[in-house]
Write a protein that binds this DNA or RNA. Structure first.
Lengths: 190, 190
DNA sequence: GTCTATAATCCGATAGAC
DNA sequence: GTCTATCGGATTATAGAC
């Protein structure tokens, strides 16, 4: 296939950025066009309607998820290490798109839930394979979800004033060490 | 003080309901008035502007938080049990308002973040007191945040089709048992 | 206190020039 | 492919009757 026009990608990134930093309400076609550096007419050439724009972002998430799950399964330190680290990382393109689509799901695009659930199920499967215990797996997934929620909050607000590191103490390394202990607790022959 | 007009409370509840089930975009003054069973003019008598309406909801969260933290500290089975159970419960009035304000924070009302952080800090303090270890405390808070995120998803969508219980297995009781083990791990003299 | 207009602005989408 | 101009409908807010 021919190289997709760069404008399309720029528009999707602008849409995701606005959704995450300023919310659904602020992500208007005018604002997205301005953020992407094109006119509203130019935007509407690539995405014929706002619904099409939202669907384009969901499709992008599905693409990125496939790549993310591959990386997760091949990660040297294991899928749990990968999942927890990336959940806490608010700088990656994947995180931006994932949180943006979750904003769509909270709003007027219930179909977005499907793309999010598929990603979540794939992660859960990979974690369950190495952890064994389903309750420990659920705890790990919930911790990751919590980190995602925190990361998305720090995204928002625009000023990104590095808000107070973590209310209760501990680095990501500390958290990973605790999770290792938790895993050992339920799967003693690890 | 004289009993506050019932209409005020109905309007705030309608606003919170729409924010949580349909998102920021759908929570227009028209829609809120219809949901509350009043006219737009009637709504604007109690809350002179949309910003005032949002501030009213934040103030309500602060009131409810104070009561919630008291209940949490007096909870027979302890603050951790209370926090995890209520995080998973999507039926309480408090949960509705908490999630609604988090939608405001993600949108055009960064001040909402303050009310949310205050609630979170109060919970964290109560958990840290009984758990001792800051890393375990953080893990517990993150699990609760994850449960909140899940509960808020089930709120949305309108149809509330009871979506698949939990991808990775385990009831709330299982989760609480695991957390107890985790606490014992780091505070052997508990 | 609550309502019915109505004004002013904003948003999504179309038409058509270049 | 990208732009400007513009229409119709939605959204916030005001004015004033009851």
């Amino acid at each position: 296939m021919p190289p997709p026009p760069a404008a399309r990608a720029k528009v999707l990134e602008a849409f995701a950025t606005l959704l995450v930093t300023q919310g659904e309400r602020a992500a208007t076609l005018d604002a997205v066009a301005a953020e992407a550096g094109v006119s509203k007419g130019g935007l509407l050439y690539h995405f014929g309607s706002k619904v099409a724009l939202a669907e384009g972002l969901m499709a992008l998430l599905r693409e990125l998820t496939a790549a993310d799950v591959e990386t997760m399964r091949a990660w040297p330190a294991g899928p749990v290490d990968y999942f927890i680290r990336t959940s806490a990382d608010s700088d990656s393109a994947f995180e931006l798109v994932y949180v943006a689509v979750s904003r769509l799901a909270q709003g007027s695009y219930p179909q977005a839930r499907g793309a999010l659930d598929d990603a979540h199920d794939a992660w859960t499967g990979a974690v369950l394979e190495v952890v064994g215990d389903p309750v420990v797996t659920r705890a790990i997934m919930l911790i990751g979800d919590g980190l995602y929620a925190q990361a998305s909050e720090h995204f928002a607000g625009g000023t990104s004033a590095a808000s107070a590191a973590s209310p209760a103490g501990g680095s990501i390394e500390d958290l990973l060490a605790l999770i290792d202990q938790m895993v050992a607790l339920r799967a003693p022959r690890g």
